[in-house]
Write a protein that binds this DNA or RNA. Structure first.
Length: 859
RNA sequence: GGGUUGUUAGCUCAGUUGGCUAGAGCAUCUCGUUUACACCGAGAGGGCCGGGGGUUCGAGUCCCUCACAACCCACCA
């Protein structure tokens, strides 16, 4: 088949992907050393974003590369039920229909959400295909699949039996709109202006931003060293309040800043995280005054039923009326937590939750990190994580949304403290040993189940056929998931399997918009990867996003780089077109890929370059330097293959000479496609399948072996390149209307490669002469002259003079360096030797330049 | 307040354990329609490597310090 003139990604990519998928190329082979990646599961019913457009190519590069290396490779895709995110979307859809979650039972809600997800599912899977993800779709795991739930229950049971699960009342970040608690990391804090009210408070005066919580006060705290209030500590004082007098204890606690406000703090254990801590330390009672709807409770008397904000106004007014308000600082600023979805102010509320005692798990995880059992890229992330394990608090694993894995626990109807583990979560009530139990309606925190992802997806605990892929070779994820996810995978992985879940962790940074701003819907600066693919192609996006980017750094998206990627694909395409044409003219077919040994210097040279590129790619990929790897393949293909090798092959192509042997061109093309395939899978595969008449696929080809080339021969071509570059440099400055001639004497390389040099340097002729004239091609160090008129030579004089000055400056520098005894004594011998050689070369060049200038001036 | 990262060409970024004249892409300038490619070719220009100090024969790279930016954690009653 013939290659069409231009590469149109959109007309090849879908078919190419379908070819791969139907051929079974994505499946593990069962042969060789296992190499595995488990994909961080994208939201099942969402769309991919640019973050995925970075994550997927990286993982795909690793997978394709190792697959070609002959490893037994698997990339397991996943789909996330995305507990909270999906829930919000679903609830909005419900609201549109004029319904609410309160109209349905939990079972109904779960089923409805399931159907909702099913309906909206599929787009992210299509988008993964558009990105070229060579993952094994037959292994796709959904985070609510039965097997996931079963393992999560086993883990919960194991933790339960190990007494690491407990029911505790804790202050939680509670969103009164979503009726759910949040992990600390899910709360968005913002600095805001909020009035600071100074009020009379028994014998004290104190400041608070939340006067409405006054009814929940059970103490006041002062700093232990604060002389002003020393005498009150441990006393009970009577406070006149808006609802009449009440009593509180006075405690001394370090958390109080004696310099802030009046140095006195009212303690409301039920509605403030700090106060909660103080209450724990001093055994203080707790009084709840705000309910889950965000309204004041009966305990607040006449304020009951008011919203928090209304109550605040009403209480302030009441304080004023009772002359208890001293002053108001209206300019006070503080950080207030908001629900990251609906922006409602987060209320700290005490609630019964399931907790996991993380200490024993964290200690083990930290130890593993400190022993270096896991390789982190970038390295600092490991240290960050080790510190995090020190300060990790017990993990609240309950969530109050129906869309998730139900917690398999039941409560005795007659004894609230009697909880049993049971997996019959489809039953609202069960009877065990004659006692009636009621199901807990909470679901697990998403991270509790996804924290087990590496061994769930590989069926490790079930010794399934994928268990050889655990631990995973590498976990590739975003820096933002270091704590919520990676930390948990390590803890739970060690706890459940006694193994670290992955050998390496690679963190990719956030992708910012073109101006370095964080992307957000509200800013309207979100880049849709599918649009980029539509415009430039999938390979272009992959290359553009991987190049100019390093691990763990938040960096801007760059359309220019995507364009570079597109151009690269086009370059590859056209190299293939050229080779196809030559092969066609010569009657050669590309059907078979035979090993073809190099003959000419050009051929030796290109194999040398190819080998060097291969070695560098191996090294870059082994060290997760993807941007450098892309740069390596880009420049090898463009500079070495297109600009030198292909150009050089033209010199002989028209002469029926063998230096442009079509079979060798084909051979090189095949090697290039293989090297480039992990980075630009679509275009390389398109070229492969079009130029090969058999039904082989590039995706399944082996990575190139070391190449047979002769260094000496390759060096000859380097000599030619030097000469050609020099000629081009000189000729560029000359009038462009005509071709120039080269003359030489006693130069076998030039004699042997006349056609090549003539073609590459675009010369009129190359002739051997006895008497030279014109301008010597000075820097290349060959016996060659450009046959120029005296005027042209004279015009070039200035350039030569400048070059001479530069050369002399370099000589001075080198001489200074070498005359420094400290340098010659302390620097490595090889380096000093290098400097010496360099000096020699520069001096030779100087001599040639001087001679040439003398010749010019005497003319 | 604590921590992390960053500050290199007009823009976006590389620069691996300190070592040759600090690189790339895009952009800019000059020349060029040589039948693979104008999504091209040949060539060029452009950098007090954020400021200051130090260690070293040698610093973009290590140390100190300052400035600015981003992010994370904690705290702010």
């Amino acid at each position: 088949m013939k290659l069409p003139k231009a590469y149109e990604p959109s007309s090849y990519e879908p078919q190419i992907y379908a070819l791969w998928e139907t051929s079974g190329a994505f499946a593990s082979t069962g042969q060789g050393e296992p190499y595995s990646i488990v994909m961080p599961p994208p939201n099942a019913n969402g769309n991919l974003h640019v973050g995925h457009a970075y994550m997927i190519p990286i993982e795909d590069i690793l997978i394709r590369y190792h697959r070609m290396q002959g490893r037994d490779t698997i990339w397991i895709p996943g789909a996330d039920h995305a507990g909270f995110e999906t829930w919000v979307v679903f609830e909005k859809a419900l609201e549109k229909e004029g319904k609410s979650r309160f109209d349905f039972s939990r079972e109904q809600l779960y089923k409805m959400t399931w159907n909702f997800v099913e309906q909206n599912r599929g787009s992210m899977e299509l988008q993964l295909r558009a990105l070229g993800a060579s993952c094994d779709w037959s292994r796709l795991v959904f985070t609510l699949d039965k097997k996931v739930v079963n393992i999560v229950y086993d883990t919960f049971k194991k933790l339960w039996d190990d007494k690491l699960i407990y029911r505790g009342e804790r202050l939680v970040n509670y969103c009164t709109k979503h009726q759910t608690s949040f992990a600390d990391i899910e709360v968005e804090y913002r600095e805001e202006k909020t009035p600071l009210y100074y009020m009379k408070y028994g014998p004290f005066e104190l400041a608070t931003t939340r006067p409405e919580t006054k009814f929940g006060d059970t103490a006041v705290a002062v700093h232990p060293g604060d002389k002003r209030y020393e005498k009150y500590v441990s006393q009970t004082v009577t406070v006149e309040g808006v609802n009449g007098p009440f009593e509180v204890q006075v405690v001394a606690d370090e958390m109080v800043d004696p310099n802030f406000g009046t140095g006195v703090v009212k303690i409301t254990p039920a509605h403030s995280f700090d106060d909660w801590e103080v209450a724990q330390r001093h055994n203080l009672p707790m009084k709840v005054v705000i309910d889950r709807e965000g309204r004041m409770t009966e305990a607040t008397g006449r304020f009951a039923g008011m919203t928090v904000m209304d109550a605040r106004k009403a209480v302030v007014k009441a304080l004023e009326e009772k002359d208890l308000l001293v002053k108001v600082d209206k300019g006070y600023k503080t950080r207030i937590g908001h629900c990251y979805k609906c922006d409602t102010v987060i209320e700290p509320l005490p609630m019964k939750q399931w907790f996991l005692s993380v200490k024993p798990l964290a200690v083990r995880a930290k130890q593993a990190i400190e022993q270096g059992d896991i390789k982190f890229i970038p390295t600092q992330k490991g240290k960050e994580l080790a510190r995090y394990f020190d300060e990790l608090k017990d993990w609240n694993i309950s969530r109050q949304i129906p869309w998730g894995i139900p917690i398999p626990a039941f409560q005795n109807e007659n004894d609230p403290d009697d909880w049993i583990f049971d997996t019959q979560v489809d039953q609202e009530k069960i009877t065990v040993d004659g006692k009636k139990y009621k199901r807990d309606d909470d679901t697990f925190d998403t991270w509790f189940s996804s924290g087990q992802w590496p061994f769930i997806t590989t069926d490790y605990l079930q010794s399934g056929d994928l268990s050889r892929f655990y631990p995973n070779s590498v976990m590739e994820t975003g820096t933002d998931l270091l704590r919520p996810w990676v930390a948990r995978m390590i803890m739970l992985g060690l706890y459940c399997t006694d193994k670290i879940p992955f050998d390496d962790v690679f963190f990719h940074g956030l992708i910012l918009d073109e101006r370095g701003q964080k992307m957000s819907k509200s800013k309207g600066n979100v880049i849709n990867p599918m649009e980029v693919i539509g415009e430039f192609g999938s390979d272009a996006l992959r290359i553009g996003i991987v190049m100019n980017r390093s691990a763990g750094q938040a960096q801007a998206f760059s359309t220019a780089s995507v364009i570079a990627g597109r151009n690269f694909c086009n370059k590859l395409w056209n190299i293939a077109r050229f080779i196809e044409n030559v092969a066609g003219e010569e009657g050669q077919s590309v059907k078979t890929l035979l090993e073809v040994n190099p003959q000419t210097p050009t051929e030796h040279w290109v194999l040398q370059r190819l080998d060097q590129a291969r070695i560098r790619l191996d090294d870059h990929i082994a060290n997760y330097r993807f941007a450098e790897a892309v740069e390596t393949i880009y420049h090898f293909i463009w500079d070495d293959v297109a600009d030198w090798f292909v150009e050089a092959s033209k010199a002989a192509a028209g002469h029926g000479k063998l230096s442009a042997r079509p079979e060798f061109l084909n051979h090189v093309l095949g090697l290039c496609l293989r090297l480039a395939h992990p980075f630009a899978p679509f275009v390389t595969e398109a070229i492969w399948t079009i130029t090969h008449e058999d039904d082989s696929l590039l995706i399944s080809q082996p990575w190139p072996d070391p190449q047979p080339f002769d260094k000496e021969k390759a060096a000859e071509f380097d000599q030619i390149r030097g000469l050609v570059s020099e000629i081009r440099y000189v000729v560029t400055e000359l009038p462009a209307s005509k071709k120039y001639d080269l003359i030489y004497r006693d130069d076998t390389l030039i004699a042997d490669q006349t056609d090549l040099i003539k073609s590459l340097a675009n010369l009129g002729s190359i002739t051997k002469v006895d008497q030279v004239r014109g301008l010597r091609v000075a820097t290349a160090g060959r016996e060659a002259w450009l046959d120029l008129s005296a005027e042209l030579v004279y015009d070039h004089q200035i350039k030569l003079e400048r070059r001479l000055a530069d050369t002399r400056a370099e000589i001075t520098k080198l001489e200074q360096r070498l005359s420094n005894k400290n340098y010659t004594a302390k620097a490595p011998a090889s380096l000093v030797e290098e400097s010496r050689t360099q000096l020699e070369e520069k001096k030779e060049l100087e001599t040639r330049l001087v001679t040439e200038l003398n010749v010019i001036s005497t003319k």
